[in-house]
């Protein structure tokens, strides 16, 4: 358990980072940049869930993080393949 000050400050800080990345998703110049921004978004969300699990002392949040990381990996691959040759599976 981190001390409360660090936990809440960290929560606000990560939320700020999430906001910045959401803006970048919306305003990306190219498709690859948008995919990358989405990937980073889920990565930061996993960090947020890790922070929450640390404060909570229970593993529920980390289970969600595990699923989220797997899901974002598959989504990124599919999006890249679609962007590359207009088909998700070649």
């Amino acid at each position: 358990m981190s001390s409360n000050v660090v936990f809440y400050a960290g929560l606000v800080w990560v939320a700020g980072l999430l906001g910045v990345v959401v803006v970048r998703v919306a305003r990306a110049e190219t498709t690859a940049q948008r995919i990358l921004a989405l990937d980073l978004l889920t990565l930061i969300l996993v960090g947020l869930l890790a922070l929450a699990a640390g404060q909570d002392g229970r593993a529920y949040a980390l289970e969600a993080g595990l699923a989220l990381a797997l899901l974002s990996f598959v989504a990124t691959l599919a999006a890249c393949r679609y962007y590359e040759n207009r088909r998700p599976f070649s």
Binding site: V46, G47, A50, A53, G54, G57, A59, L62, E63, L66
Partner: peptide
């Protein structure tokens, strides 16, 4: 680093998940 900070004081369930992630 965030996961390590979580796993430092967690029980077995948290540590396995952190390592797995």
């Amino acid at each position: 680093a965030l996961l390590a900070s979580t796993a430092l004081h967690g029980d077995g369930a948290i540590i396995t998940r952190a390592v797995l992630i």
